[in-house]
């Protein structure tokens, strides 16, 4: 006999697995900071175990001294075009003019903000609140003369490569 309160698990819960994903952030440019954060946010919201390992320049994303001030430069970015003017390249020499990096950074920050995406430090807090784990790379921390106190509050620990490989066992790894 069935009753009205019979539980019917919807199909979107049928794919619940032990899936795990690890992002490696190795870049400290503003435009290179967001891809991993956005994908990690999507992953953790889908119930996937999510870790982010910050190494080399990626450490700037979690370093209190730099995380509020990541920059975006035109230099070396051949995809750069004026806003919404696709197909028109920006000449590379333009990026070398004084003030261009600051201007490009302001513009990109505004465009990202307009999409409802928070600044990097707030984004990291949001990820931690969602259950993601943040890890700092030991070699980079030593090389830059930093400690855990210099990092964003959400960073769990400073770990070495061996420890990262242990925690990422069986995970899908995305290198940015």
């Amino acid at each position: 006999m069935t009753t009205e309160t019979e539980v019917m698990k919807p199909a979107f819960l049928a794919d619940e697995t032990d899936r795990k994903v690890c992002f490696i952030c190795s870049k400290g440019n503003l435009d290179m900071a967001y891809p991993a954060l956005i994908m990690a946010n999507g992953a953790v919201g889908e119930g996937i175990e999510t870790h982010i390992f910050f190494t080399f320049w990626g450490l700037d994303m979690i370093n209190r001294k730099t995380m509020n001030d990541l920059k975006f430069t035109l230099l070396g970015n051949t995809a750069m075009h004026p806003p919404r003017r696709f197909g028109i390249s920006m000449p590379q020499w333009l990026g070398g003019l004084p003030g261009m990096t600051a201007m490009a950074t302001r513009m990109l920050r505004k465009q990202i903000g307009d999409q409802g995406v928070p600044p990097v430090p707030e984004f990291l807090s949001m990820l931690v609140d969602s259950g993601a784990k943040l890890w700092a790379c030991k070699m980079t921390v030593d090389m830059m003369g930093l400690t855990l106190e210099d990092m964003h509050d959400g960073v769990s620990e400073i770990i070495n490569v061996a420890e990262f490989l242990e925690l990422s066992e069986g995970a899908q790894i995305v290198f940015v």
Binding site: P10, F12, G45, E46, G47, D129, S130
Partner: peptide, 18 residues
Amino acid sequence: TKRLFELFPKKPGKKMAY
């Protein structure tokens, strides 16, 4: 954010919409 994950664990966005 933390509260949303407590209220609707694992897949909060989809669960609350459902």
